[in-house]
Amino acid sequence: MKPFAYAHPGDVAEAVRDVAAEPNAVFLAGGTNLVDHLRLGVARPDLVVDVRTLTSREITDLDDGGLRLGAASTNSEVAADRRVRERYPVLAQALLAGATGQLRNMATTGGNPLQRTRCPYFQDVTTPCNKRQPGTGCSAVGGYTRYHAILGTPGALPDPTAPETCIATHPSDMAVALTALDAQVHTLGPAGVRTVPFVDLHRLPGDDPSKDTVLEHGELITAIDLPPLPAGARSAYRKVRDRASYAFALVSVAAVVHDGDVRIALGGVAHKPWRATRAEEILRGGPLTDHAVRAAMDAELAVAQPQPGVEGGNGFKIPLAARTVAATVRTLTEEQS
């Protein structure tokens, strides 16, 4: 672990100034991901700016019927909030499907979506990784790819030596639910405040896998808004994983069903939470039968690229994603009827 300076400024404006002024500075909230990375040498900041107590911890009603989650509210608090549980069960379920009780007590609304993409080679500083050390190549291609991406990857067989190659996935369950809910992210940065649609917060590796989100250096999430869902809408989160608890998703699905329309977001399949817009379009107006959903997902996944690798690679995620979406939508439509 590399020594770093620690700052605990008095307010968010000062925190943003502190980080913006130091190119190798990071924000610290719950620390559930950053502290691991500090220990492993994956994150090597010169300055850590603690914002844990600077943003709001409140969950407040919005005039339009939505909810505002203060960035410092914890995953436990949001999951336990009656309004969240009643109006956005997909979010409460996603939160409770993630991590452990102890971690959820620490992890925050602002921090959870900003956890880094996950890959064992990213976490191991002795192996090349374009995300950790741009330009060194990708060790995951052809290696252990069980938890890696099938969507949004660069081409059929990514070149492990190319500087843009990264097949990691984003591990947040919360982010998948927020993607399906069309949440809005409020930030304060060196350039002032702005609002980013949650679906646009995370990015594909593109030509720079070191960047997980569109946030600028020094830009801080202050709150996340949940727009109201139409009356009668139903939502659910389904996480498929290798053990019953405390594991990252192989595939996860956040679904919102309303009047024959469906919103679908997938986790565990891409560098970002994946909104299945093509499947949504095909399914618009219904009927949401098992067959129709599977067919729509087949269309969505037509561009999916299974990654080969040790122990058979990750091609199983393609049928698994389609089946899990169908099962989740079935649960929601059966409840409805």
Binding site: P120, D242, R243, A244, S245, Y246, A247
Partner: peptide, 9 residues
């Protein structure tokens, strides 16, 4: 990443 059966299993 190395999974050991947890209580829930």
């Amino acid at each position: 990443e190395y999974h050991i059966t947890v209580n829930a299993d």
